[in-house]
């Protein structure tokens, strides 16, 4: 599969290397060439310095023939813009978008993007961990346990 990844942070770099190992044709983009140092030398995919919201960069990255576009750059809005462009303008069939804000993730999922929110996943993981030993239960009435909040007056 031809995959274009926008954003060479921890997630982008890790994903790029894993997909490359699995035999996919991977191009990874970042606006900061310094970010490519996160890639191990054995990653033989393409590194492209440029913005995934920019048409010239996208075309150079081969967006017109890509099977998958993944947006995992740092800004939610830029990820959304690039993803909608990949899907609507370049007809990429599979577009996956990281949206940190859970509300925006929900909205753009509804509008047809495949979004995931690491924030939402993080909240769920933290909550599950808190619930695990049974001291904290669902539906505990607010203020029923623990000390009352310290007043300000």
């Amino acid at each position: 599969m031809r995959v274009v990844i926008m954003g060479c942070g921890r997630v982008g770099a890790g994903l790029a290397q894993q997909l490359f190992r699995e035999g996919h044709d991977v191009t990874i983009l970042d606006t900061d060439a310094f970010a490519f140092q996160r890639l191990l030398p054995k990653f033989q995919g393409r590194r492209l310095h440029g913005s995934g919201t920019d048409d010239r960069t996208l075309i150079e990255a081969g967006i017109e023939n890509a099977d998958v576009f993944v947006a995992v750059a740092s800004g939610d809005n830029r990820n959304i813009l690039a993803s909608q462009k990949a899907k609507e303008m370049y007809g990429v069939k599979r577009v996956v978008t990281r949206v940190k804000d859970p509300l925006r993730a929900e909205l753009f999922e509804r509008l047809g993007l495949e979004t995931f929110s690491p924030t939402k996943v993080g909240i769920e993981l933290a909550r599950d961990a808190m619930m695990r030993d049974g001291t904290m239960r669902d539906g505990t009435v607010r203020g029923e346990t623990g000390a009352a909040g310290e007043g300000t007056r």
Binding site: N77, R78, I80, L81, A82, L107, R110
Partner: peptide
């Protein structure tokens, strides 16, 4: 910022 404008517009309209 076009990304911000596009998101604001869609949030306004659809949310």
């Amino acid at each position: 910022d076009d990304g911000a404008n596009l998101v604001t517009a869609q949030v306004a309209r659809h949310w």
